[in-house]
């Protein structure tokens, strides 16, 4: 196998002003400038975006699925963080 394969990049697109960039997929490119252009050519052919981020896939650090329980379950019992936890009399408005 030859080694001419371009690095893999993750693509994030803002679909319109005011929204977050969202992960849409990945592609190959030789450098960052090309990655942005390839993303434009591949992922915005139908007016899907107004802004593009790319990051080389190897630079993404992810949480470990095996640790999902210790990472995320502790948030489950903190119901008091949510507004619905609190009873407010019906007569009180604007809260």
């Amino acid at each position: 196998m030859n080694n001419s394969e371009w690095p893999l990049w993750e693509v994030f697109i803002r679909s319109k002003q005011g929204l977050d960039h969202k992960h849409v997929g990945s592609l190959h490119a030789a450098d960052a400038a090309m990655a942005v252009q390839n993303a434009r050519d591949v992922y915005t052919r139908r007016l899907e975006g107004v802004s593009i981020w790319v990051v080389e896939s190897k630079h993404i650090h992810a949480s470990n699925p095996d640790e999902a329980a210790e990472f995320f379950d502790p948030a489950a019992d903190k119901v008091y963080r949510h507004p619905t936890f609190y009873d407010v009399p019906d007569s009180i408005k604007h809260m």
């Binding site: 371009w6 592609l27 190959h28 490119a29 252009q37 390839n38 050519d41 591949v42 052919r45």
Partner: peptide, 11 residues
Amino acid sequence: PVLEQDLALAN
């Protein structure tokens, strides 16, 4: 020469 550029040329 590569899929990404196939798309660019067609654009």
